[in-house]
Design a protein around this nucleic acid. Structure first.
Lengths: 163, 163
DNA sequence: CGCGGCATGCAAAAATCTTGCGCTTCGGTG
DNA sequence: CACCGAAGCGCAAGATTTTTGCATGCCGCG
């Protein structure tokens, strides 16, 4: 339930910074980091979840531990800019588990899409189906990832943090 | 401790798929989904963590709940391709909390970098410091994100999943 | 056919999470 | 200046969940 505006104080910012790096800690451990009792931490987390600041908790896999992993960034331009075509394109991508991220962007390209597949055959199959064979894709280019230097979705909730 | 090869059976794949979407469940709930007792689930998770398949557990924030959020994808090419320069460039990016993702890629560009900042002023400050003023950046282009259609880092551990 | 190795379920024990309660702080109000 | 209500905290009891020891069942191998 994303409320319009949720006021966050310094402790909330600290807490979110910590949780975005490691959410696998007890409330006591978190409390020590932010200087609060376990129950206070818990109440804040509950509030942040209820207000939709915290969207979800997930596990991240090590890319190098996933066999034959191929990551690729594709930039895509659609044929025509009708809303309906965009909807269809997005939906098709959303339905594919190999599509890790989708960003609609400004400029020469319409979308940036990140694919995660197993082996080149799989990659070709997926991008072929979702991009090459798509009726409204005008053009796309693939940038193969040689090394995922950093992955993650941490968002800075404030300017610089310390801990 | 990433071991060389960790054999994963069907239940492991199911478990990882579930955990990558929602890690905020009790062992019993997870057990129901994958058809195992709580303790068995727990032992599998422990094993996956120890072997480095599961890298970490994190909280994801809702982009729309983060005020003034600006996401941008920058593609970057360095001046010279020496190893040392790459190291330095990567390290500088790694030190910035506003840098969400860094991919070294093949082709015309060397890197794809995703920035998350608060407001255009912040964005300019960060990209200015890390890209424009960087001594070894030859050229870069920014694709501003109009809409984050999908975010996340879920990796498919096997071909298609059902649940 | 018998012997480990391995993963499981069960249940007890340990730890963590959850919640009620009283207290303090902070503003707004009479 | 005193009073009142909202909000957030710590503490502690109670509810759940996690953790672990143990016996069992299932292969694969000698």
């Amino acid at each position: 339930m994303p409320r319009s505006e949720v006021p966050l104080d310094d402790i909330d910012h600290d807490l979110l910074a910590v949780l975005q790096r490691d959410a696998d800690q007890t409330l006591s451990a978190l409390g020590e980091r932010v200087g609060l009792s376990p129950s206070a931490v818990q109440r804040r987390i509950t509030r942040l979840k209820k207000h939709g600041v915290i969207a979800r908790t997930v596990v991240e896999l090590a890319p190098e531990a996933t066999s034959d992993l191929i990551l690729a960034v594709c930039v895509v331009t659609l044929d025509r800019e009708s809303n309906e075509r965009h909807e269809r394109f997005q939906q098709r991508l959303l339905d594919a588990p190999e599509v890790q991220q989708i960003y609609m962007v400004s400029g020469d390209w319409d979308y940036v899409v990140v694919f995660a597949t197993h082996g080149m055959a799989h990659h070709n199959e997926v991008t072929g189906r979702l991009l090459s064979d798509a009726p409204n894709v005008r053009r796309y280019t693939t940038l193969f990832v040689l090394k995922p230097v950093r992955t993650g979705n941490a968002l800075p909730t404030r300017r610089a943090e310390s801990g």
